[in-house]
């Protein structure tokens, strides 16, 4: 694949590679290099894609290879906060904190090899954990490179009231408003026990109701899903906890009000979700409560991962029809990016 790229030197960003149709590739090892790369791309109106390793050229796209911008900067074991460089993949990050007896929570296989920086840019939503939230939720601080080539800074704290949460500008916005070059993330003690639980219900609404009751009783699985199984709907969960808690599955089954099913069903689902080869899940559709059955009829192989009182987010094998924001907000986001680049709008 390296044959597709031609070495080149640029005064602003140093050594890089160029490819056909305006493609470019740059390796970065420092946050300031990301900032310079964004500025360079903005000047040339190139799209930006964060990658690890060498990828095929894409027209008018700068690939920023962040493999050298990876690693654990510091681990605050008192506050359980990991300071990670943006090029670290989630699998690497989990391994780094695991060696100190800590965890980021479950890391789905479909995101394991994605750099943290790229997940923030994409607004990663494929780990809707009741216990740990989304992978991009537990942020105590975030430093970003901006399209004008500057770096932001931020104090490290669990919450703040110093104006809007400006760091959200780099979550879900591609690289148009900046990229997260390092983040402080909440980590947790590794669980002493992980058990799988499976519960069956006569239909989607019953399964959804059972999940909501469990949440309201304070039960928060590490991850879970509801999906059709034959004529029934099954709720599959992994419960993390203390080794001495022998009744975790029983409490979960009782809370949901469903019929206990073989735990092997849930374990198979957990193993599949944790498998790095499981890269299929991308299409996401929010369904209101009561709308799960209809949505499931419309999409084959659908799973409801983000079960909450108001509804659920349905995940399906990739089909290229991910939900878009309302047009008005997309237009505003474009204008925001234009203002940030200093363009006259």
């Amino acid at each position: 694949m390296k044959d597709a790229w031609t070495p080149h030197h640029d005064g602003a960003v140093g050594d890089l590679w160029t490819g056909p149709a305006g493609a470019a590739r740059l390796e970065v090892a420092e946050p300031v290099a990301v900032a310079r790369a964004l500025a360079w791309a903005a000047e040339r109106a190139l799209a930006v894609r964060v990658v690890r390793g060498v990828r095929p050229p894409a027209p008018r796209t700068l690939q920023i290879d962040v493999g050298a911008l990876a690693g654990l900067v510091a681990l605050d074991e008192i506050s359980r906060v990991a300071h990670l460089r943006g090029g670290t993949t989630w699998a690497e990050a989990e391994a780094l904190v695991a060696s100190r007896g800590l965890t980021l929570g479950p890391v789905p296989g479909c995101v394991a090899e994605t750099p943290i920086m790229a997940s923030f840019a994409a607004g990663e939503r494929r780990r809707p954990s009741p216990a740990f939230g989304h992978l991009t939720d537990g942020v105590l601080a975030l430093r970003a490179a901006l399209p004008k080539g500057l770096l932001t800074r931020s104090a490290v704290a669990p919450r703040r009231a110093t104006g809007p949460d400006l760091a959200r500008c780099v979550v879900g916005t591609g690289a148009t408003l900046g990229l997260a070059v390092d983040v402080h993330l909440q980590v947790w003690d590794r669980p002493e026990s992980r058990v799988a639980a499976a519960v069956r219900f006569p239909g989607w609404d019953a399964a959804h109701d059972g999940a909501v009751v469990a949440l309201r009783q304070g039960l928060r699985p590490a991850w879970w899903c509801a999906r059709r199984r034959g004529r029934e709907v099954e709720l599959l969960a992994e419960l993390w906890g203390d080794a001495g808690d022998a009744d975790a599955v029983g409490r979960f089954v009782d809370a949901t009000g469903g019929r206990e099913a073989p735990a092997a069903d849930a374990q198979a689902w957990i193993d599949a979700r944790a498998d790095a080869a499981d890269t299929r899940w991308s299409a996401q559709v929010a369904a209101p409560r009561g709308g799960l059955a209809a949505a499931a009829r419309a999409r084959r192989g659908i799973e409801a991962w983000d079960l909450r009182p108001a509804g659920a987010t349905l995940y399906a094998p990739r089909s290229g029809d991910a939900a878009d924001p309302p047009d008005a907000w997309a237009a505003l986001a474009d204008r925001l990016a234009e203002h940030l680049r200093g363009e006259d709008v």
């Binding site: 607004g123 939503r125 009231a161 110093t162 104006g163 809007p164 949460d165 400006l166 959200r168 500008c169 979550v171 879900g172 916005t173 591609g174 408003l177 929010a286 983000d306 909450r308 108001a310 509804g311 987010t313 991910a322 939900a323 878009d324 924001p325 309302p326 008005a328 907000w329 997309a330 505003l332 986001a333 925001l336």
Partner: peptide, 21 residues
Amino acid sequence: RRTPRADALGPGPDWNQLFVG
């Protein structure tokens, strides 16, 4: 304007968190 729901975010920033505060 009505911001996109926090539990159904698509591409684009989380406008809720930009207006809050």
